[in-house]
């Protein structure tokens, strides 16, 4: 995760507003530094870092809003919207590998069951009780006793990937709209930074 940049020139014995302006100017810049990178959906780290930058900016706008005469709520809502979409994208980016690891674990559990079956057949060759063997295999396949869990995990992975694609498309639309509508300039005007 990208660390926030140090802000120079903050004087705690001055009023809130001039200090808030200095800090916010840097945090706005931090959001916009990802502008190029987030045009590629594969840049998972940059999308995550942009979410963190949006989160920092949003909280600071909330904290410092008391010092500004302009109503910052519409700006805060907009930054939050961006942060939320990026957060949902991040959830998908985290969940898919987690589900894949779970799937690998289920497959290993099945393989262990099969190995056990083969081992027991080899040891007791000549006097195999077929029904008991099948029951044991079924037990080894599903220790939870609820049947094959893999289709559900595959379905969930497919769903999360679809959601990720849709969320990314939404994010890109939103980000392009904000740039078209000169959101940064509006924000800077409201904070008296322009």
């Amino acid at each position: 995760m990208a660390k926030p940049r140090r802000v120079s020139g903050v004087d705690p014995d001055r009023r809130l507003r001039p200090n808030a302006r200095r800090i916010l100017a840097v945090r706005i810049d931090e959001v916009y530094q990802y502008d190029g990178a987030v045009a590629d959906p594969a840049n998972v780290t940059e999308l995550h870092d942009m979410r963190i930058a949006c989160k920092r900016l949003r909280y600071l706008l909330e904290i410092f809003s008391v010092a500004f005469t302009e109503d910052l709520d519409p700006i805060i809502d907009q930054v939050k919207e961006l942060q939320d979409i990026l957060g949902d994208i991040h959830d998908c980016d985290v969940q898919v590998p987690l589900l894949q690891r779970h799937l690998a674990w289920l497959q290993e559990r099945e393989a262990a069951g099969a190995r056990e079956l083969v081992g027991s057949r080899a040891a007791g060759a000549g006097e195999v009780d077929a029904e008991a063997e099948i029951a044991r295999f079924a037990e080894a396949l599903s220790s939870s006793g609820r049947g094959d869990e893999r289709p559900g995990v595959h379905a969930l992975i497919a769903r999360r990937r679809q959601e990720r694609d849709a969320l990314y498309a939404r994010f890109l639309d939103e980000w392009r709209r904000l740039k078209r509508e000169r959101f940064r300039a509006r924000m800077e005007r409201a904070l008296d930074l322009a």
Binding site: L99, H102, L106, S142, S144, R146, G147, D148, E149, R150, P151, G152, V153, H154, A155, L156, R159
Partner: peptide
């Protein structure tokens, strides 16, 4: 999700 997916979701 369909019936075949239920055991997987319950397991998770």
């Amino acid at each position: 999700l369909d019936d075949a997916a239920q055991p997987g979701i319950d397991g998770l």
